[in-house]
């Protein structure tokens, strides 16, 4: 039986639904020794800002039960360095490159980034990171308000012809309202979830384990929360969902597809098992064969339950 793993997100076609989650895969070079990167459905880069950004002071990560906290704070070399020294490697892989972008300070930066990237053919899609919880001094995230989400997404929409993905925060009252706002503003897809806000304390020092005190929680600890949000969003919007949050292996990837995700992203799992993405691609194929399902698309939202 021939299995079709390919899926479509906006204008881009992925040969399989397995992507990398921004911030957990660097700019892909870091993983070149471990896996054949060309097999990935798509690569989502570490978030890039207009100017180089130093991020937060260490300690920036700590382990928590079944997960970890991070407060990296969007450290990145900035757009120019990315285009010159990171993008050429990604281009050679010949798979869709989804560039994660963020603004620090003014949302105008999103527009500037989108405009400049619109002419860069090696970038296939943009992922708007309006949900990073680690920007010091930023009390509310764009993706925590429907209006701000709508405004930002629609202004970027006007500035680019590329596929536009909006990445959402789980730290909200109603995820489907935010997802709807992104959809009506012209986003081609939504990615969820970004990390959950959290903290951890060193009881000997009676001090926070992270220098920034709070950070974003990732890993299997957040999986049920993420899954529920994907399911909820799926029931309320029409655009594709890229699901993520603690996916470690094939069974957890399948949960997200069944809940309503068209594609899935592997994040923190890359740190523990750099081969996780490839193992999941193979695992999905085997599952579909076993279940006699012809395509990955058929899995999306196939949850059966009595109302």
């Amino acid at each position: 039986m021939k299995i079709n793993l390919s899926v479509k997100i906006g204008k881009i076609k992925l040969k399989n639904p397995v992507m990398t989650a921004s911030g957990t895969f660097g700019y892909a070079e870091e993983f070149n020794d471990f896996i054949n990167l060309k097999r990935l459905g798509a690569i989502v880069t570490k978030t890039v800002t207009l100017k180089p950004h130093i991020g937060n002071l260490p300690a920036r990560t700590c382990e928590t039960p079944s997960g970890m906290l991070n407060s990296i704070g969007l450290e990145n070399p900035g757009l120019e360095v990315f285009l010159k020294s990171k993008l050429p490697f990604l281009k050679k892989l010949n798979i869709p490159v989804i560039m994660s972008i963020a603004s620090i300070g003014s949302p105008e930066e999103f527009i500037e980034l989108a405009k400049r990237l619109n002419k860069v053919s090696a970038v296939d899609a943009l992922e708007l990171n309006i949900s990073c919880p680690n920007i010091i001094g930023e009390k509310t995230l764009i993706s925590q308000e429907c209006e701000a989400t709508y405004k930002t997404v629609s202004s970027v929409r006007k500035a680019t012809n590329k596929t536009l993905i909006t990445k959402l925060s789980p730290n909200v009252t109603c995820i489907s309202d935010i997802a709807k706002a992104a959809q009506s503003a012209g986003s081609d897809a939504i990615a969820l979830i970004n990390t959950l806000s959290g903290m951890s304390i060193d009881i000997e020092k009676r001090a926070p384990k992270l220098k920034a005190v709070t950070g974003g929680l990732s890993g299997p600890a957040i999986r049920p929360v993420a899954l529920k949000m994907v399911w909820e969003a799926y029931n309320n919007i029409k655009i594709p969902i890229i699901g993520m949050g603690g996916i470690m292996d094939t069974p957890s990837a399948l949960e997200f597809l069944i809940a309503g995700a068209t594609a899935i992203s592997i994040g923190t799992a890359n740190f523990i098992n750099p081969k996780a993405t490839i193992e999941i691609i193979d695992g999905l194929s085997e599952y579909l064969k076993r279940k006699k399902i012809k395509s990955a698309e058929e899995l999306t939202g196939s949850l059966s339950h009595e109302k």
Binding site: G23, T24, F25, G26, E30, F31, G55, P58, R60, T61, N70, I72, E75, N270, F271, P274
Partner: peptide, 8 residues
């Protein structure tokens, strides 16, 4: 492996 930028 240099990807997460956690140990700076």
């Amino acid at each position: 492996i240099g990807a997460c930028l956690g140990c700076v």
